[in-house]
Design a protein around this nucleic acid. Sequence first.
DNA 1: GCCGGGCGATAACATATGTTATCAAACTGC
DNA 2: GCAGTTTGATAACATATGTTATCGCCCGGC
Lengths: 194, 194
Amino acid sequence: MFFHFRDRYPQLNVFWEKYQPFLRRMELPAKKVLLEEGKRSQQYIMIEEGCVRAFFNSNGEEKTVQFFFEKQGLSSIDSFLNNVPSPFAIETIEPSVVSLLHKKYVIQLMDEMGQDPQSMKMLLQMAARRQQHYINELMSFVRDTPEQRYSNLLKDRPHIIQRVPQHYIASYLGVSAVHLSRIKAKLAKGNPHF
Amino acid sequence: MFFHFRDRYPQLNVFWEKYQPFLRRMELPAKKVLLEEGKRSQQYIMIEEGCVRAFFNSNGEEKTVQFFFEKQGLSSIDSFLNNVPSPFAIETIEPSVVSLLHKKYVIQLMDEMGQDPQSMKMLLQMAARRQQHYINELMSFVRDTPEQRYSNLLKDRPHIIQRVPQHYIASYLGVSAVHLSRIKAKLAKGNPHF
DNA sequence: GCCGGGCGATAACATATGTTATCAAACTGC
DNA sequence: GCAGTTTGATAACATATGTTATCGCCCGGC
């Protein structure tokens, strides 16, 4: 689903730089929808400042799938390559600045990479890593209790807990907001000074 | 994690056929381990007959991640490309016949594909689809109750329920074997003739 | 300064799920 | 065919989690 062209694979920046002129920079308020659930994704989204989330609707309730922050890029690669509707929506959490790159340039960019087997391999590696990310999330759901998942989040990605409203985190962890509150209370009892 | 070279992408069979001579065919009893958790994957596994599962150990309990049947191929693509230990084990469920292709041939095969941008694109599409598969699994965990997940399984992949012992299915659904029994009893009450 | 909304904590109760134990049926190796 | 193992059902009890409602706090608009 999501590809990160920058950061992890600086060797690919040479491709990315070339498309800088086609970026559309936008300043957005909080809770601004960037992609609606069920629509076909048309833009690669690069976050310059702020943060966004991917979520979907489940009988009236919003379930958050993932959070993204500055310097991260995202797009529904499946929607791009296979032209299928996006199974989730994307919206800003904080007021944010993003740069959009239209789908056609992304495909063009990937075609250029296709000329170079080395870059293409890197794309595949990225794909394998992304796949592994979701497998890890899945394994965490099967293996860990919500309390453990919260502890892991606190340990590995505390910035999420600091910046994101708690009910989004609750739905990301797969529990109700009330129960997340209980979890925090329980953990606080164990570690009084936090 | 898992790549299917055959079936879904018959255009790629031309590559696959070429490596037929290097396949090692094996007949295996049930519960035979093909890959241990934590080891680096060395073989692409093609299932000719029978079925296998991928699982991992979570404080003494085995949690099943996925099931595979005849004509499906699997391997830890992440373990291949990035040479990292496999986060789960693979073992047969039924007595099975499998063909193994050593990692070095798989990499060779992928290099050959790399010469052909069209095939490479197909590999990326496969990757995108596989990624989507795990995202769907993840979304199902967040969205659905165990009862709904069981119903979905019954509707979409009944062969799994027919062939696989129930406690494996329970761990795949993320519930205890006892509770899966309750779920079945409850559903049977609603549909007496099943 | 006031007001309303969003956010988070907590309580009380209902439901879902885990755990342990027991039993019966089906299958396995010999 | 027999003994042991695997599988699946069920009961009883403990725990985890959801739901609804209420309260207080903070913050932004005016």
